[in-house]
Amino acid sequence: MELFKLDPGLAIWTWIAFGILFFILWKFAFPVLIGNIKEREKLIAKSVDDADEIEKRLKEINIEYAEIIKKARTEADGILLETRKESDLLKRKLLLKAEEEAADIVIQIKDKMSKEREALLLALQGEIADFVCNTSAQIVETSFTSEKDHDWAMELVKTL
């Protein structure tokens, strides 16, 4: 049958054709092609590794950042608390000082006032005494007409 007719020549040509093609590709094409593919795969693998490394570093940085933020927040809270304590203390001190100063001022004023009052009282007493004396002198001058009364009155005034 024509369909299954043996043709050893064609079989040999098939081997020769395949052999030639395999030799050409194996010798000239595949080393270059496979080399290019490998080089590109290495480059891709390196890029992927680099990307992984960057991602890892980024995660670390994020963690560090979060830690720094947390630490800063804690420090800020501490500073705020400390400041608040210090300000309270300062406020209390200032208040005490102000109270003390106010008390001193009050005492000073009171002293001054009492001194002034005493001075005023003394002055008033002098004025009153003068007034009484003058008044008495006038009364004596007007009322005691006799010599005897006048003397008595003068004597009395001298005793005052």
């Binding site: 064609l10 093609l21 590709l25």
Partner: peptide
């Protein structure tokens, strides 16, 4: 030469030609 033999060698020429003319060494972006 038979047609089938001719087809075999034609395919060898086509494949070898395509490979030898299009594959260049050190090409990063083919």
């Amino acid at each position: 030469i038979s047609v089938h033999g001719f087809m075999l060698f034609l395919s060898v020429v086509i494949i070898a030609g395509l490979f030898l003319f299009s594959i260049k060494k050190g090409v990063r972006k083919p």
